[in-house]
Design a protein around this nucleic acid. Structure first.
Lengths: 186, 186
DNA sequence: TATCTTTATGACTGATTAGTCAATCAATCA
DNA sequence: TGATTGATTGACTAATCAGTCATAAAGATA
């Protein structure tokens, strides 16, 4: 791992443990095994490091979800596959996923370019639009559907994270949970 | 408003704007109109202030939801009424509700007594248990239902907060959203 | 090897912060 | 009125932190 990646990974872990402002840059540098000043060669400021940690996680997750898509036939199959991948990734990277939540409820969210947020959101919105067009989804406001899907998915993640569930049962819960969701908005 | 309340209300606003660690106690005191040292007469430490802000919001919300219950006949009516009240309260106190979310994703959550968390959760769990017993809800794990209901409710709040919706339409969205939820787990 | 360029270092600084405490003020009551 | 009590004040301190910079190490080039 190069220094930049190491700094990001370390900071994610520490931010999770101690919060953004509770984590000194000096500690991040130390635990990443670089000198204090080196951190500021890779990141203009602490805020910049936090923002880059956020985008790096979003991109990593996005890449994973993309690579697990095998081109399901129906829009519904596609949607289930995407959401299932997302939950799986989140459960395999709980620290990173929790970081995202922490970030989303922090004042740093407002520092992210609107364009960047848009970029991460668009694929989902397009899917929803298509499902509405095909009359697969109820004709509810697109934004409402998006929010409900996100919340529901997050809820399933939270349940699986908080309650020890055997690996094979895990897939069953995901399957069941997604079917409930689909049924709800279809 | 007495000083203690003023300090809590002020801190909630500032924590929302600048985050927990981004808000100095000196600023909280200043904006609450008291001296620096006075804050530490009411709160042992900054952490203690944050924890008290959290519990005070939870109690305030709990009291509101309780007073709006008119003793609906069915368990389903009761549940809808509780959730509807919760969303209404949240929309009327967005700062406080956002504070709760911020707190929930922060490391401070772990400092709250397990007993306290249990106290806030129990009424909801009891309702869910009753609904399962009456075979009104699907026989899914109680914890899963709880998490899905919470997430869904939070999703509706988020949608209504992010999108300008006229007051009368608001109730319609809440009604529709709750019906979707109920249908899903019934 | 000698020279140049890039990367890394960590001591240092100026600014900020949580929490303290001696002094002041306000309220109550004999 | 004068004494007692408790609340309030804000200057102060010891500690911490983000970010800098002069120096050194490592790497590239010829």
């Amino acid at each position: 791992m190069d220094k930049q990646t190491r700094l990001i990974e370390t900071s994610i872990r520490l931010f999770h443990e101690k919060g953004f402002h509770g984590t000194p840059t000096s500690l991040i540098a130390k635990e990443a095994g670089v000198a204090n000043g080196t951190l500021f060669q890779y990141f203009r400021s602490k805020e910049n490091l936090i923002l880059q940690a956020y985008t790096s996680i979003k991109e990593e997750m996005g890449r994973y979800v993309e690579t697990t898509q095998t081109g399901a036939g129906t829009i519904m199959g596609h949607m289930k596959s995407v959401l299932s991948s997302s939950i799986t990734w989140a459960l395999d990277h709980p620290l990173k996923f929790d970081f995202i939540q922490q970030f989303h409820t922090s004042p740093y969210l407002q520092k992210v370019e609107q364009e960047t947020i848009e970029k991460y959101k668009r694929p989902h919105m397009d899917m929803i639009q298509e499902a509405i067009d095909q009359k697969v989804f109820k004709p509810l406001p697109k934004e409402l559907i998006y929010t409900l899907i996100s919340s529901h998915t997050f809820g399933m993640y939270q349940y699986l994270r908080a309650n020890e569930v055997a690996s094979h049962e895990r897939n069953e819960v995901i399957e069941t949970g997604l079917d409930l969701l689909i049924k709800m908005i279809s």
